[in-house]
Nucleic acid binder design. Structure first.
Lengths: 130, 130
DNA sequence: AGCGTTCATGGGAATCATTCTCACAGATGC
DNA sequence: GCATCTGTGAGAATGATTCCCATGAACGCT
């Protein structure tokens, strides 16, 4: 999963820095447009490559719902997200019980080398008020 | 989510019948090819429309991982999947604890109208043996 | 059964995200 | 500074999904 050594370039730093400023999940296309606005333009293909690399290194999370994939900067430890359906705001949450539950259920069915992905969607307080 | 009344057509029945015969998740393209082999051909666009309708009615589950979406016939009650990474075989599992956990965590952060999606991936016993 | 309305179909074009190609630029190591 | 080798970028290519629209088939009614 973690690939060999990465070369540090202006473009990769730009993508990561931009992600740090974002609150919720952003698509590759969004990031590309934002970078262009911001002044330090990066090729679209490069944005995709940078995101793939960051994903391999566990520095971003990906969310594939409808159509396009969305990325978000995240802590490198395992966790899940609470995502607002309407504004995209996200909260990282840990879930010890689910970890154990997943491992147990998988074992019961003879599955090994287990991973899981869990996303919780809802409407956040701010959006519900509207 | 559940749309208006649906018209019952040969094509929709064919898609649903085919899904009933499948074991794991299948992409729309796969289903289209299988239907063609089987004799009762259905247009690709129609396969997509049928799957979308079935999805709205809660009769199939969708899995969006890499590239294309995969669909599978499922029971209409809420549940999750244990999916073999290598052969695609799936097992439906219920998870009362996660339900409660998700609801509680969401409430703590002021989120309402909560939904969640959880998939567990692993290598099934048969595939691990190889 | 006949009929009209309305929704579904299909095939090819259109869309859209993502990946590939390849010549060139820049990072890294010495 | 230099050689090497990976990263970049623009556009083409790919591939899944959706749109368009003329034709066909359900459904409700009589």
């Amino acid at each position: 999963m973690t690939e060999g050594p990465r070369r540090q370039t202006r473009q990769r730093s730009a993508v990561l820095a931009l992600l740090d400023d974002q609150d919720g999940f952003r698509t590759a296309q969004d990031l590309h447009a934002l970078l262009r606005e911001r002044g330090d333009a990066v090729g679209l293909a490069t944005v995709y490559r940078a995101l793939q690399a960051l994903l391999d290194d566990g520095l971003v999370d990906v969310l594939r719902t409808e159509g396009e994939a969305a990325y978000r900067r995240c802590s490198p430890v395992h966790h899940h997200h609470l995502v607002c359906r309407s504004c995209g705001r996200t909260v990282e949450v840990a879930d010890p019980p689910v970890e154990r539950w997943a491992a147990r259920v998988a074992a019961e069915h003879g599955f090994a080398d287990v991973q899981h992905q869990l996303e919780v969607f809802g409407t956040c307080a701010a959006c519900a008020a509207r």
